[in-house]
């Protein structure tokens, strides 16, 4: 399925992930965690399909369990002592619950990042930071270009070496290793010489001169503005909720959180909508497409 959220302006994508990752890291409240986890899983499945389900089941559940068990083994704070270990350290209810919450948070973050990797491609990142950090963004984009280029060049060098019997597939192990190092050495010399040529070419074409514009295929449309405004509004509401203590939970020495009120329900709902923005956008897009199709 095509992801419509990724077609929005990079600033919308980036803002979404920054806000969501920060909130997922700060808010330890169980309901907030469940909301974030469900949204992250839904979006990752939407983005990657079956491989996301496999990833979540195969890697995330074991990770969750290991991390949930790690915490009570080392953390002995909390007032509700369940039992004592052989070495005399107590196992407390609070540390077990905190371990579960921390593990849940870590898993949520990893899943969010797996979505981030798909949506925020490197070109979007370079576009966003090209204005603020032009030199570093240039390095970034050059590196991303060089890596596949070097891989291709290594093949060229290796084939040429094969002709004179000096490839890594020829000779005994010692010779192979030596040939491998020679190939890498040729590669490095080529890369550096080539780099200087590239740099001179860039300079002769006016790199670094003032008043130059850069090409980008991104346009800030009114739909980007609307989504950004909605995101901003929801974020502010969640932050207000956070300031009122609705989103936090205290684990040590005893578990304590604000009692649930109609207001906290509103905050939960707002947070849910915020987390689900990409999913909502995708669903709306599909519905739009379906409605257009049926009319034809």
């Amino acid at each position: 399925m095509k992801d419509s959220f990724a077609t929005f302006h990079p600033i919308v994508n980036f803002m979404y992930f920054v806000v969501i990752l920060l909130f997922s890291m700060i808010f330890m409240h169980p309901i907030f965690q469940v909301i974030a986890l469900i949204s992250a899983i839904t979006y990752s499945i939407m983005l990657k399909g079956n491989s996301a389900i496999k990833f979540n089941l195969l890697y995330m559940i074991p990770l969750l369990l290991i991390m949930a068990l790690m915490n009570p083994a080392f953390n002995h704070e909390g007032s509700t002592i369940l039992f004592y270990l052989n070495n005399g350290n107590p196992i407390t209810l609070e540390s077990i619950l905190f371990g579960m919450a921390a593990a849940c948070m870590f898993v949520t973050i990893v899943i969010w990042f797996s979505c981030y990797n798909i949506v925020m491609t490197s070109d979007k990142f370079i576009y966003l930071f090209g204005k603020v950090l032009p030199a570093l963004s240039l390095i970034l984009s050059m590196v991303l270009r060089f890596v596949p280029r070097y891989v291709a060049q290594i093949k060229v060098i290796s084939n040429a070496q094969k002709c004179v019997g000096r490839d890594i597939s020829q000779g005994n192990i010692l010779q192979r290793a030596r040939n491998g190092i020679t190939i890498l050495s040729i590669m490095t010399t080529w890369a550096l010489e080539n780099a200087i040529e590239t740099a001179d070419s860039m300079k002769s074409r006016g790199y670094g001169l003032p008043n130059r514009t850069s090409f980008s295929i991104f346009r800030f449309d009114s739909r980007d503005k609307i989504v950004l405004m909605i995101m901003l509004g929801l974020t502010i509401m969640v932050v207000i909720g956070g300031a009122r203590g609705e989103n936090t939970i205290r684990f040590f020495p005893s578990i304590k959180m604000v009692a649930m009120t109609p207001l906290s329900m509103v905050v939960y709902l707002v947070y849910f909508v915020l987390c689900m923005i990409p999913v909502i956008i995708n669903v709306v897009e599909v519905m739009k497409w379906k409605s257009i199709q049926s009319k034809m």
């Binding site: 030199a135 060089f146 890369a191 780099a195 590239t198 300079k203 670094g208």
Partner: peptide, 24 residues
Amino acid sequence: VFEKRKPQARELIVIAVLTAIAVA
């Protein structure tokens, strides 16, 4: 500091080459 210095193309590219070798 790096941006303010307005580094030359050659300097940028040597850093990029070494980074690319490390990444590869």
